[in-house]
Simulated scan of single mutants.
Amino acid sequence: MLHSKLKVAAKPILLSALAVSACLAATVSWAKSDYPSHAITLITPYSTGGDSDLAARNFSAVAQKYLGQPVVVVNKPGASGVIGSDQGRLANPDGYTLLLSRPGSQAILPAISPTKTKYKWSDFTPIGLLELNPYGCYVRGDSPYKNFKDLEKALHAKGAKMNYGTAGALTTNDMGPKLLFDTLKLGDKVPTQIPYKGTGEATSALLAGQIDFSCSSIGPANGLIKAGNLRALFVTTPERLKSLPDVPTSKELGLAKMEQITGWSGISGPPGMPAEIVAKLWKAMEETGKDAAWIRATENAGSVPFIKGPTDAKTFTQGQYEVYHELGKSLGLIDQVK
């Protein structure tokens, strides 16, 4: 009798538990379908004024039209992009905290400094790619180095007494010069790297005469180059840039290997993001990529629109990781950079 009563009593409890479970499932489903219901934070892992910052702000200004909510850019610079990237990785996978992906933080660091980097290249949810950033090296407008040959002669003569600015170790700003020095076979005449928190700060230091040259995505320096404040010595694109037709390509100068170095931006999220949210974000990215205002802002920043979805973004990032891993091995850099 007691056993029978327990069975009868258990039925309401079971039904109640099932009802709660169904209610929770419905709430989660509703939350996903309602996404986004408030502002989205977009972390950029470098300081203001650089190509990552420009990419994030150009995206946020237009994407909110297609998401129906503000996209708030938050700069989290430090440790060559690791600090901001790791915050993006550890965020709640609800789609309200995203990361502006960059080659330094998402491919180079995991490839060359795996034991010191807190994450792997694959520890993020890829949402899409935004743009490519033509890369090059430049000096101050009044520099005695009128062209690359002038700089090359100086490097061979007194390279160890020279310096260059970067956005930190193991960024494209750093890897480009490392590959350049190896190609030029400078030996013990390698210049000293002066690391900053972002490309903008490195460019400011160059303008102030604190460093001899810098290499980075050309976009943020484009206006300064056209105004004569900076002088571009070469770009790593296969063809000369339409915006800088007088600047030779690295291949023209016999530096074809430098074409491996290029900048790019994408959007990613923490691991475990629901597929429905990823799809909504990608749809907004896709619409943003067709928007004339975004295209104009991206091109004005010296970048090339390169809208690709989650699958292509994952394949591209893996390819970049493999390029820099091989480059790191050839230069003897794997886990050697402090």
Rank of each mutant, 00 (worst) to 15 (best):
V71L: 09
L170D: 01
Q87K: 06
I108G: 04
A297N: 13
Y119Q: 14
P103V: 14
D150V: 01
S52N: 15
Y66L: 13
Q260A: 14
G200S: 02
W282V: 01
N92S: 11
L100W: 03
A79S: 07
K76E: 04
G332W: 05
N229P: 03
G128H: 10
D34M: 09
A292C: 02
W282M: 00
Q69R: 13
D291G: 11
T236V: 12
D51K: 10
G269P: 01
M273Q: 09
K283I: 01
F316P: 03
L331F: 06
K280C: 07
G332D: 10
E326Y: 01
A169F: 12
G84T: 02
S268C: 01
A169K: 07
I218G: 08
A79T: 00
T298S: 04
M175I: 04
V74M: 01
E259D: 13
A232K: 04
A205P: 01
L184Y: 13
N173L: 00
N58K: 10
G302H: 04
A256W: 05
L244I: 09
A157I: 11
A79Q: 11
P271L: 15
L129A: 05
L327E: 12
Y324E: 13
G176F: 06
L186K: 12
F234L: 05
A63D: 11
E326K: 14
S85M: 08
E259N: 15
I295A: 00
G263R: 03
L90A: 09
A19R: 11
D312F: 06
P93F: 12
A91T: 03
P126N: 14
E239W: 02
G78T: 04
G165F: 01
N173C: 04
L130C: 07
K290G: 06
I334L: 11
P245M: 09
T298D: 08
Q210C: 01
C215R: 10
D188A: 10
Y135L: 04
Q64D: 14
P220E: 14
T237P: 03
N300E: 06
G309E: 03
A111H: 13
T97E: 08
P103E: 15
M258Q: 11
A301W: 10
F213L: 05
K290F: 07
K118Y: 09
S303Y: 07
N58H: 11
E326M: 05
K329A: 10
D34G: 06
K178F: 03
S52P: 05
K329I: 00
S113P: 04
G49S: 13
D94H: 14
S85F: 01
S85H: 03
T298F: 02
K189M: 02
V72Q: 11
L155M: 06
M285A: 04
A61M: 02
R296Q: 14
I127N: 07
G269K: 05
V278N: 03
G176H: 02
D150H: 08
G219S: 12
V20T: 12
P195Y: 08
P110R: 15
L233F: 10
I127Y: 09
K32W: 08
D123I: 14
D312K: 12
N147C: 05
S265C: 10
A221M: 11
L230F: 13
Q318C: 06
N300I: 01
G159N: 15
Q64H: 14
D53I: 02
K280S: 07
P195M: 05
Q210T: 02
